[in-house]
Design a protein around this nucleic acid. Sequence first.
DNA 1: TTGAAAGCGCTAACAA
DNA 2: TTGTTAGCGCTTTCAA
Lengths: 342, 342
Amino acid sequence: MDPMTSSALHTPRGPVTRKDVARYAGVSTAVVSYVVNGGPKRVAPATEAKVQDAIRVLGYRPNAAARALKLGSSETLGLIVPDNSNPFFSLLAHAVEDAAADLGYALVLTNSDGNLAKERRNIRNLAARQVDGVLLASVLFEPDLDDLEKADIPSVLMNHGREAAGFNSIGVDLAAGARIAVEHLIGHGHTRIGLAMGTNVSGEVDGRERGWLEALRDAGVPEGQIVHGEFTRPGGHLAGQRLIASANRPTAIFASSDMQAIGILRAVREAGLTVPGDIALASFDGSVESEYSWPALTTVEQPVRAMAEAAVAALVGAGRGEPAQHRIFPTQLRVRQSCGCP
Amino acid sequence: MDPMTSSALHTPRGPVTRKDVARYAGVSTAVVSYVVNGGPKRVAPATEAKVQDAIRVLGYRPNAAARALKLGSSETLGLIVPDNSNPFFSLLAHAVEDAAADLGYALVLTNSDGNLAKERRNIRNLAARQVDGVLLASVLFEPDLDDLEKADIPSVLMNHGREAAGFNSIGVDLAAGARIAVEHLIGHGHTRIGLAMGTNVSGEVDGRERGWLEALRDAGVPEGQIVHGEFTRPGGHLAGQRLIASANRPTAIFASSDMQAIGILRAVREAGLTVPGDIALASFDGSVESEYSWPALTTVEQPVRAMAEAAVAALVGAGRGEPAQHRIFPTQLRVRQSCGCP
DNA sequence: TTGAAAGCGCTAACAA
DNA sequence: TTGTTAGCGCTTTCAA
């Protein structure tokens, strides 16, 4: 049979459906389903060949919406980040997309732009779209779990520091990471170590601040100065300027994110000073950008890939259905030049 | 009526559907639809209030899959990029997400990781998911349009240099942008201007190479050296090393992307040279990172936001249904310090 | 202004 | 091994 003719005959209008395939192959729609999905019933080889042929000739593509409706699953995951142009989150998004794709899931990406209202809208929107799970990197340290709870969708809190009853969450040990970085700075002989923190909305003290403080105390080093700013390059720039202008200018700074450190680098140069000569610097995250700055940043690296995989697994992989848990991943100090190491 | 009781009464099993709402409100399912969608029929205010109430009490959320099946539209767009952790593409993704969200569309993000097979798989996957349009930033300069054509989905080629018959495409005038940057370098008195190009798979000469060459010729400056490398920091690093090691070392380099320039910056420093003192540098893209490097990069900025909006509009906005066209956006030279300007 | 009902494409239970 | 068919939740035409 001439494929062209048949195709014209069988797909006069609109897209090809399972029915068209069935008719062309001379079988029932059920058999087409069995072939397409590899089950749940077996199909005779000859029949399968006919069906495969029909699919190819007609250019049939299953309708995912219909499947989602029937199955109650869209095979889609939702990711909510404050800003996916921030290198940390863009890496996270990439890793999550990879992990999801490995399991046959697509990823819907949404940005909250540091805006809580938008974050909540995103949660509701994803819920309405029947995503099978959402990964939330909240703009808040303590996200509004109400929305997520009401959405009634498997979820995991990313980039999250502490236990949240009834929720999966994934994060790194901020305090331990900060501590090791600050200890490294202390090892270089510094005794005036400032801290550039993020803007912490929660009532609780951020782990990085705790780690910084503990390292200082344990070493008998006087408590340094704290400046708060956004987790961005401009935020770090501002924080750096403030730290540099302060009466008792620190000889070292620990920044709570690489982006801030990049901004601090600029502030130091603008002040006619150098890193690490005048001010040593260490930061948090381990983004690629930290490797190519000048000088290269000594930074506490987060295992983004592993965290993304764990998150996806908890939602739709091996960990699905298991009780919610808080998973903490280890960080690793990447020693480069900004701290004063050669 | 006690909401708790009613809720318990009306949602004994599973998620709340439109039927539950109709029963609770004492109306038909059609009316619920009218209320939820604001049409196509008008509903009496009193009835509407009852329905709204029922929706709130029962916590009803419309099922997007069912809607998509009925309407033949998932109100979803697909974006395919080579690598969304590349700052240029992460910015593009963010801008596209914003533009799509404004029109009520969600964005499915996929990475091809520089892999053509994966790109094609992504196209097919998005097509199966009934996305209403796909934005393709191909790993190739001349993408395989067959796949896209077969998918039979509205699409637009992003980051695309030339006309492709029957396809929407959006890009920037690469040659003009390169030209203005190289002219600027020439204005600084340079006569040995190298070019760090990307890896061009197409047979055609990349616009940036053409612009570079034309600027040189028009100014009567001898043709410089070309080195090819990946559009990444390490790719630029390598390209920089090669350019620096060459017999007739250039005094200025034009890089075809910011990421390459960042890598070149590192190569120059490692060689004990400085930018712009020993080697002046200008690049292409205008990513945020270029503003915070040291020295800050003089770069040809692409209007990413505008391009993203135009792409989304062509797919599901005002431009939907219009004949396919190739849209070229203007670039702008951001003069900073890497070129030698103060 | 409201309601009844058909049907979007698919899966899978059940029947043959 | 294959076929028939109900029904997933929604939109909308047509009738009341």
